[in-house]
Amino acid sequence: MPEGPLLRFQDVNTYYGDLHVLKDVNYSIASGEIVSLLGGNASGKSTTMKTIMGVVRPRTGSVIFDGVPIEKMSTADRVKRGIAPVLEARRLFPRMTVFENLEMGAYTRKRGPEFAEDLERVYSLFPRVKERLNQVSGTLSGGEQQMVAIGRALMARPRLICMDEPSMGLSPRFVEQVFDIIQEINRQGTTIFMVEQNANMALSIAHRAYVLQTGKVVLSGSAAALRRDPAIREAYLGELQVIPGQVDTDSPPVSSRIRAPVAPP
């Protein structure tokens, strides 16, 4: 295995038409880490995930996975190299069964003993999934769907899982369960890059985190340090939403520029 980080963003700029979404963004994620990406609405979090998966391509800059630039590769080639997504709002194939959804996770891989091994791994992490194998996934509860969505990502036998809002729409009890399982998956050797609104939970399991605001990385560091940062506490750990934009040019230091809204929407 080459030395260096598993995933690196090097001065990445991503646009939607004229809209400049990611601005000179740099990330570096080492093998074995859980890294969390925090930020308000429209800060570029989901665009980061789409840039990793190749759904949007950076205009400039480089995305390097395992030492190889991947920014020009097709999504399928990225999946084959070992990147799997857990998509925002789960995005299961609603009229396919749970088992078929898991099969789709392993779409780029050959069927064989490894497929059975991976199924067993998913069943041991999520016994509930095994009970629901032949159920049409659109009829599952939100929590069950999230289990299948994570299981589906594991079926790709990925080295890196990109998670977009794994706690979204789940009951608090379920959120804790999901985060426990994310930690367990990480302990089994999979690197995790996670976008999460629930900063409290995210920082409690992450090793490190980046804070994104209107397309720029404004803060990064160890999860423990970020949890102590007063601006982070105000902006995220109270779980208020951050209003993006309106950054004064002659403003005080970076961390105090992260604003809490006057009134939550």
Binding site: M53, V55, S74, T75, A76, V79, K80, P85, L87, R91, L92, F93, P94, R95, M96, E100, M104, G105, Y107, T108, R152, A156
Partner: peptide, 16 residues
């Protein structure tokens, strides 16, 4: 079928 139900998600599973 996956593509018919959610083309973007299918693509992210590696479907061409």
């Amino acid at each position: 079928r996956a593509t018919a139900q959610d083309p973007e998600a299918a693509r992210m599973m590696g479907v061409e």
